[in-house]
């Protein structure tokens, strides 16, 4: 694509994304006192992550079956309090192993 045609797209795209991130983050300096808002913000990360994980994880590999195995392994490792890297790598390794096995069956 011609760079002169591409550049305006890039600037608008990156500019909007940057402002969406930075304006609220920069504006709120005081601790929020409202109990509802505080509770809402406390639960926000968990709600975001859960909503993004399920059901999307089921379609993240080449086969729903292997994704279920990855999901299960991640849930078990996380339940026993393993760290981010362990859970992520464990899930990847489980998917890899099952896909390997499936190739030879």
């Amino acid at each position: 694509m011609q760079f002169e045609k591409f550049l305006p797209y890039l600037i608008v795209m990156a500019g909007v994304t940057y402002l969406v991130r930075v304006i609220p983050f920069t504006l709120f300096h005081k601790k929020i006192k409202n109990k509802f808002i505080n509770s809402f913000l406390y639960y926000t990360p968990y709600a975001v992550l859960a909503a993004m994980t399920f059901p999307a994880i089921l379609y993240a590999t080449s086969h729903v079956g292997t994704a279920v195995v990855g999901l299960f392994v991640a849930l078990v490792l996380a339940f026993f309090g393993k760290g981010l890297l362990t859970v992520a790598c464990g899930a990847c390794a489980a998917v890899f192993a099952v896909e390997m096995i499936m190739r030879f069956i």
């Binding site: 639960y43 990360p45 859960a50 994980t53 590999t61 981010l84």
Partner: peptide, 30 residues
């Protein structure tokens, strides 16, 4: 394909321990 679950695995590592500890978080996750 295997790397496809990496990010989700990380998400799970954040919300599952919290949901295990607090009934309220478990409810929100549900």
């Amino acid at each position: 394909s295997a790397l496809g679950v990496a990010l989700y695995g990380m998400f799970i590592a954040v919300f599952v321990p919290a949901a295990k500890q607090e009934k309220s978080v478990l409810c929100v996750v549900g």
